[in-house]
Nucleic acid binder design. Structure first.
Lengths: 140, 140
DNA sequence: ATGGGGCTTCCCATGATGGGAGGGTCAATA
DNA sequence: TATTGACCCTCCCATCATGGGAAGCCCCAT
Protein backbone atom coordinates (compact mmCIF):
# COMPACT_ATOMS: atom_id res chain seq x y z
CA UNK A 1 0.00 0.00 0.00
CA UNK A 2 1.05 3.64 -0.47
CA UNK A 3 1.91 6.03 2.31
CA UNK A 4 -1.56 7.56 2.41
CA UNK A 5 -3.21 4.26 3.13
CA UNK A 6 -0.50 3.32 5.62
CA UNK A 7 -1.09 6.62 7.35
CA UNK A 8 -4.81 6.02 7.61
CA UNK A 9 -4.29 2.45 8.76
CA UNK A 10 -1.72 3.32 11.42
CA UNK A 11 -2.93 6.70 12.59
CA UNK A 12 0.46 8.26 11.90
CA UNK A 13 0.61 11.25 9.56
CA UNK A 14 2.49 10.95 6.30
CA UNK A 15 4.83 13.66 7.45
CA UNK A 16 5.67 11.67 10.55
CA UNK A 17 6.13 8.43 8.68
CA UNK A 18 8.69 10.05 6.40
CA UNK A 19 10.32 11.70 9.40
CA UNK A 20 10.57 8.44 11.32
CA UNK A 21 12.20 6.91 8.29
CA UNK A 22 14.63 9.81 7.90
CA UNK A 23 15.87 9.54 11.47
CA UNK A 24 16.15 5.77 11.30
CA UNK A 25 13.34 4.93 13.69
CA UNK A 26 11.91 2.71 10.99
CA UNK A 27 13.86 1.14 8.16
CA UNK A 28 13.40 2.64 4.68
CA UNK A 29 10.63 0.75 2.94
CA UNK A 30 10.70 -0.49 -0.63
CA UNK A 31 9.82 1.87 -3.44
CA UNK A 32 7.65 1.15 -6.44
CA UNK A 33 8.82 2.09 -9.93
CA UNK A 34 7.49 5.62 -9.48
CA UNK A 35 9.53 5.95 -6.29
CA UNK A 36 6.43 5.79 -4.12
CA UNK A 37 6.98 4.17 -0.73
CA UNK A 38 5.30 0.79 -0.43
CA UNK A 39 4.12 -0.45 2.97
CA UNK A 40 3.23 -3.89 4.25
CA UNK A 41 0.84 -4.81 7.05
CA UNK A 42 3.90 -5.37 9.14
CA UNK A 43 5.06 -1.82 8.57
CA UNK A 44 1.66 -0.52 9.56
CA UNK A 45 1.87 -2.59 12.70
CA UNK A 46 5.18 -0.98 13.59
CA UNK A 47 3.80 2.48 12.92
CA UNK A 48 0.85 1.82 15.18
CA UNK A 49 3.27 0.61 17.84
CA UNK A 50 5.08 3.91 17.58
CA UNK A 51 1.86 5.86 17.73
CA UNK A 52 0.78 4.11 20.92
CA UNK A 53 4.18 4.59 22.53
CA UNK A 54 4.09 8.29 21.63
CA UNK A 55 0.62 8.51 23.14
CA UNK A 56 2.14 7.27 26.38
CA UNK A 57 4.71 10.03 26.17
CA UNK A 58 7.76 7.97 25.29
CA UNK A 59 10.42 9.88 23.39
CA UNK A 60 11.59 8.77 19.99
CA UNK A 61 14.81 7.61 21.55
CA UNK A 62 12.97 5.46 24.06
CA UNK A 63 10.74 4.08 21.36
CA UNK A 64 13.83 3.04 19.46
CA UNK A 65 14.82 0.95 22.45
CA UNK A 66 11.30 -0.36 22.93
CA UNK A 67 11.15 -1.51 19.33
CA UNK A 68 14.53 -3.17 19.62
CA UNK A 69 13.26 -5.07 22.64
CA UNK A 70 10.03 -5.84 20.85
CA UNK A 71 11.92 -7.51 18.03
CA UNK A 72 14.41 -9.17 20.33
CA UNK A 73 13.11 -12.62 21.15
CA UNK A 74 15.80 -12.97 23.77
CA UNK A 75 14.73 -9.88 25.70
CA UNK A 76 13.78 -10.00 29.34
CA UNK A 77 10.61 -8.32 30.57
CA UNK A 78 12.79 -6.74 33.27
CA UNK A 79 14.47 -4.62 30.59
CA UNK A 80 11.16 -3.38 29.27
CA UNK A 81 9.83 -2.75 32.73
CA UNK A 82 12.90 -0.72 33.68
CA UNK A 83 12.48 1.48 30.64
CA UNK A 84 8.83 2.02 31.43
CA UNK A 85 9.56 2.78 35.06
CA UNK A 86 12.11 5.37 34.06
CA UNK A 87 9.47 7.04 31.99
CA UNK A 88 6.90 6.87 34.79
CA UNK A 89 9.41 8.58 37.05
CA UNK A 90 10.01 11.29 34.46
CA UNK A 91 6.26 11.82 34.15
CA UNK A 92 6.03 12.09 37.91
CA UNK A 93 8.64 14.82 37.92
CA UNK A 94 6.88 16.81 35.23
CA UNK A 95 3.49 16.35 36.83
CA UNK A 96 4.90 17.53 40.14
CA UNK A 97 6.43 20.60 38.50
CA UNK A 98 3.25 21.56 36.76
CA UNK A 99 1.15 20.87 39.81
CA UNK A 100 3.37 23.17 41.84
CA UNK A 101 2.99 25.87 39.21
CA UNK A 102 -0.72 25.37 39.15
CA UNK A 103 -1.00 25.56 42.89
CA UNK A 104 1.05 28.71 43.23
CA UNK A 105 -0.83 30.36 40.42
CA UNK A 106 -4.21 29.22 41.61
CA UNK A 107 -3.45 30.67 45.01
CA UNK A 108 -2.63 34.02 43.44
CA UNK A 109 -5.73 33.86 41.30
CA UNK A 110 -7.84 33.24 44.38
CA UNK A 111 -6.30 36.25 46.05
CA UNK A 112 -7.06 38.48 43.08
CA UNK A 113 -10.28 40.44 43.24
CA UNK A 114 -10.70 40.39 39.47
CA UNK A 115 -12.51 43.70 39.44
CA UNK A 116 -12.06 47.10 37.79
CA UNK A 117 -9.30 48.22 40.15
CA UNK A 118 -5.65 47.87 39.13
CA UNK A 119 -4.46 46.30 42.39
CA UNK A 120 -3.46 42.74 41.63
CA UNK A 121 -1.66 40.24 43.83
CA UNK A 122 -0.64 38.27 40.75
CA UNK A 123 1.37 41.14 39.33
CA UNK A 124 2.57 42.01 42.81
CA UNK A 125 3.99 38.55 43.16
CA UNK A 126 5.69 38.56 39.77
CA UNK A 127 7.17 41.96 40.51
CA UNK A 128 8.08 40.89 44.03
CA UNK A 129 11.25 42.01 45.72
CA UNK A 130 14.13 39.55 45.28
CA UNK A 131 13.35 38.07 48.69
CA UNK A 132 9.82 37.03 47.71
CA UNK A 133 9.30 33.33 48.18
CA UNK A 134 6.05 32.50 46.45
CA UNK A 135 7.32 31.80 42.98
CA UNK A 136 10.61 30.38 44.08
CA UNK A 137 8.75 27.66 45.93
CA UNK A 138 7.10 26.69 42.67
CA UNK A 139 10.44 26.21 40.98
CA UNK A 140 12.38 24.56 43.73
CA UNK B 1 25.89 47.52 34.82
CA UNK B 2 26.96 45.13 32.08
CA UNK B 3 25.01 42.10 30.95
CA UNK B 4 26.94 39.70 33.15
CA UNK B 5 26.04 41.53 36.29
CA UNK B 6 22.44 41.97 35.14
CA UNK B 7 22.30 38.25 34.51
CA UNK B 8 23.55 37.45 38.01
CA UNK B 9 21.21 39.99 39.57
CA UNK B 10 18.11 38.81 37.71
CA UNK B 11 18.75 35.12 37.45
CA UNK B 12 18.30 35.23 33.66
CA UNK B 13 21.14 33.94 31.49
CA UNK B 14 22.95 36.34 29.19
CA UNK B 15 21.78 34.30 26.24
CA UNK B 16 18.19 34.71 27.32
CA UNK B 17 18.54 38.42 27.98
CA UNK B 18 19.80 38.97 24.44
CA UNK B 19 17.10 36.71 23.10
CA UNK B 20 14.35 38.56 24.97
CA UNK B 21 15.68 41.76 23.52
CA UNK B 22 15.85 40.34 20.01
CA UNK B 23 12.21 39.27 20.05
CA UNK B 24 11.04 42.52 21.56
CA UNK B 25 10.01 41.17 24.95
CA UNK B 26 12.22 43.84 26.49
CA UNK B 27 13.23 47.08 24.84
CA UNK B 28 16.81 47.38 23.60
CA UNK B 29 18.90 48.90 26.36
CA UNK B 30 21.46 51.63 25.94
CA UNK B 31 24.96 50.78 24.82
CA UNK B 32 28.19 52.13 26.18
CA UNK B 33 30.88 53.44 23.84
CA UNK B 34 32.27 49.93 23.38
CA UNK B 35 28.79 48.73 22.33
CA UNK B 36 28.29 46.84 25.57
CA UNK B 37 24.70 46.70 26.78
CA UNK B 38 24.11 48.79 29.91
CA UNK B 39 21.40 47.80 32.37
CA UNK B 40 19.64 49.72 35.11
CA UNK B 41 18.07 48.39 38.29
CA UNK B 42 14.77 48.81 36.54
CA UNK B 43 15.85 46.54 33.72
CA UNK B 44 16.96 43.94 36.21
CA UNK B 45 13.57 44.19 37.86
CA UNK B 46 11.86 43.49 34.55
CA UNK B 47 14.13 40.54 33.89
CA UNK B 48 13.34 39.08 37.29
CA UNK B 49 9.64 39.57 36.53
CA UNK B 50 10.08 37.55 33.37
CA UNK B 51 12.01 34.87 35.19
CA UNK B 52 9.26 34.45 37.77
CA UNK B 53 6.56 34.37 35.13
CA UNK B 54 8.50 31.71 33.20
CA UNK B 55 8.84 29.73 36.42
CA UNK B 56 5.06 29.69 36.59
CA UNK B 57 4.93 28.32 33.08
CA UNK B 58 3.69 31.42 31.26
CA UNK B 59 4.71 31.57 27.61
CA UNK B 60 6.71 34.48 26.25
CA UNK B 61 3.59 35.73 24.51
CA UNK B 62 1.64 35.70 27.75
CA UNK B 63 4.46 37.42 29.56
CA UNK B 64 4.37 40.13 26.96
CA UNK B 65 0.75 40.75 27.90
CA UNK B 66 1.50 40.50 31.60
CA UNK B 67 4.24 43.11 31.32
CA UNK B 68 1.97 45.39 29.33
CA UNK B 69 -0.61 45.13 32.10
CA UNK B 70 2.08 45.59 34.72
CA UNK B 71 3.10 48.88 33.16
CA UNK B 72 -0.46 49.96 32.45
CA UNK B 73 -1.67 52.02 35.37
CA UNK B 74 -5.18 51.91 33.95
CA UNK B 75 -5.36 48.11 33.93
CA UNK B 76 -8.04 46.18 35.77
CA UNK B 77 -7.13 43.23 37.93
CA UNK B 78 -9.86 41.34 36.08
CA UNK B 79 -7.68 41.36 32.97
CA UNK B 80 -4.72 39.94 34.81
CA UNK B 81 -6.85 37.37 36.55
CA UNK B 82 -8.37 36.23 33.26
CA UNK B 83 -4.93 35.72 31.78
CA UNK B 84 -3.81 33.75 34.79
CA UNK B 85 -6.94 31.63 34.79
CA UNK B 86 -6.42 30.77 31.14
CA UNK B 87 -2.98 29.53 32.04
CA UNK B 88 -4.25 27.56 35.03
CA UNK B 89 -6.74 25.88 32.71
CA UNK B 90 -3.96 25.04 30.25
CA UNK B 91 -1.90 23.59 33.07
CA UNK B 92 -4.88 21.53 34.14
CA UNK B 93 -5.19 20.09 30.66
CA UNK B 94 -1.52 19.15 30.50
CA UNK B 95 -1.52 17.72 33.99
CA UNK B 96 -4.55 15.63 33.14
CA UNK B 97 -2.90 14.34 29.97
CA UNK B 98 0.25 13.38 31.75
CA UNK B 99 -1.60 11.86 34.65
CA UNK B 100 -3.57 9.69 32.23
CA UNK B 101 -0.33 8.57 30.60
CA UNK B 102 1.18 7.86 33.93
CA UNK B 103 -1.78 5.85 35.08
CA UNK B 104 -1.99 3.73 31.95
CA UNK B 105 1.73 3.10 32.02
CA UNK B 106 1.85 2.41 35.72
CA UNK B 107 -0.89 -0.15 35.26
CA UNK B 108 1.11 -1.90 32.59
CA UNK B 109 4.23 -1.75 34.71
CA UNK B 110 2.38 -3.33 37.59
CA UNK B 111 1.23 -6.13 35.30
CA UNK B 112 4.77 -6.82 34.12
CA UNK B 113 6.68 -9.50 35.94
CA UNK B 114 10.00 -7.82 35.31
CA UNK B 115 11.88 -11.10 35.26
CA UNK B 116 14.13 -12.99 32.85
CA UNK B 117 11.30 -14.15 30.61
CA UNK B 118 10.42 -12.23 27.45
CA UNK B 119 6.65 -12.11 28.03
CA UNK B 120 5.74 -8.52 28.68
CA UNK B 121 2.31 -6.92 28.94
CA UNK B 122 3.85 -3.53 28.20
CA UNK B 123 5.05 -4.59 24.77
CA UNK B 124 1.86 -6.58 24.28
CA UNK B 125 -0.15 -3.45 24.80
CA UNK B 126 1.96 -1.32 22.47
CA UNK B 127 1.75 -4.01 19.83
CA UNK B 128 -1.96 -4.49 20.51
CA UNK B 129 -4.42 -5.23 17.76
CA UNK B 130 -6.08 -2.08 16.36
CA UNK B 131 -9.09 -2.68 18.60
CA UNK B 132 -7.06 -2.49 21.79
CA UNK B 133 -8.39 0.19 24.12
CA UNK B 134 -5.73 0.64 26.77
CA UNK B 135 -3.60 3.23 25.09
CA UNK B 136 -6.46 4.94 23.34
CA UNK B 137 -7.99 5.69 26.72
CA UNK B 138 -4.81 7.48 27.68
CA UNK B 139 -5.03 9.78 24.68
CA UNK B 140 -8.76 10.45 24.64
C1' DA C 1 52.67 43.52 25.70
C1' DT C 2 50.42 39.72 27.14
C1' DG C 3 46.89 37.03 29.23
C1' DG C 4 42.40 36.33 30.90
C1' DG C 5 37.88 37.44 31.25
C1' DG C 6 34.00 39.92 29.48
C1' DC C 7 31.36 41.49 25.66
C1' DT C 8 29.68 41.40 20.69
C1' DT C 9 27.31 39.04 16.63
C1' DC C 10 26.19 35.05 13.98
C1' DC C 11 25.16 30.33 13.12
C1' DC C 12 23.61 25.83 14.58
C1' DA C 13 21.12 22.34 17.50
C1' DT C 14 17.48 20.59 20.25
C1' DG C 15 12.26 17.46 19.77
C1' DA C 16 8.45 16.39 17.33
C1' DT C 17 5.57 18.24 14.36
C1' DG C 18 3.17 21.09 10.73
C1' DG C 19 3.03 23.99 6.43
C1' DG C 20 3.97 24.80 1.95
C1' DA C 21 6.32 25.17 -2.62
C1' DG C 22 7.45 22.99 -6.84
C1' DG C 23 7.18 19.08 -9.45
C1' DG C 24 6.21 14.14 -10.96
C1' DT C 25 2.45 10.25 -11.36
C1' DC C 26 -1.72 7.96 -11.84
C1' DA C 27 -6.51 6.98 -12.79
C1' DA C 28 -10.90 8.36 -14.21
C1' DT C 29 -13.78 11.12 -16.80
C1' DA C 30 -15.39 14.35 -20.27
C1' DT D 1 -7.07 11.81 -25.86
C1' DA D 2 -6.68 15.58 -22.92
C1' DT D 3 -7.66 17.28 -18.68
C1' DT D 4 -8.55 17.11 -13.88
C1' DG D 5 -8.01 15.87 -9.23
C1' DA D 6 -5.92 13.06 -6.00
C1' DC D 7 -1.78 11.23 -4.74
C1' DC D 8 3.20 11.09 -4.10
C1' DC D 9 8.06 12.99 -4.04
C1' DT D 10 11.89 16.13 -1.96
C1' DC D 11 13.41 20.25 0.19
C1' DC D 12 13.04 24.23 3.02
C1' DC D 13 11.08 26.79 6.76
C1' DA D 14 8.63 27.52 11.29
C1' DT D 15 7.49 26.39 15.88
C1' DC D 16 9.22 27.29 21.39
C1' DA D 17 12.71 28.49 24.61
C1' DT D 18 17.08 27.51 25.28
C1' DG D 19 22.11 26.18 25.00
C1' DG D 20 26.66 25.76 22.55
C1' DG D 21 30.25 27.53 20.19
C1' DA D 22 33.20 30.29 16.97
C1' DA D 23 35.42 34.52 15.64
C1' DG D 24 36.56 38.77 17.03
C1' DC D 25 36.72 43.16 19.85
C1' DC D 26 37.60 45.42 24.51
C1' DC D 27 39.41 46.27 28.99
C1' DC D 28 42.26 45.68 32.98
C1' DA D 29 46.04 43.91 35.55
C1' DT D 30 50.37 42.07 35.61
Amino acid sequence: MNIGEASRASGVTQKMIRYYESIGLIAPVKRSANSYRVYTENDVHSLAFIRRARALGFSIEQIQKLMALWHDKGRTSAEVKALAQTHVAALDVKIAEMTAMRQTLQHLVACCQGNDRPDCPILDDLAAAPDGKTVQSATA
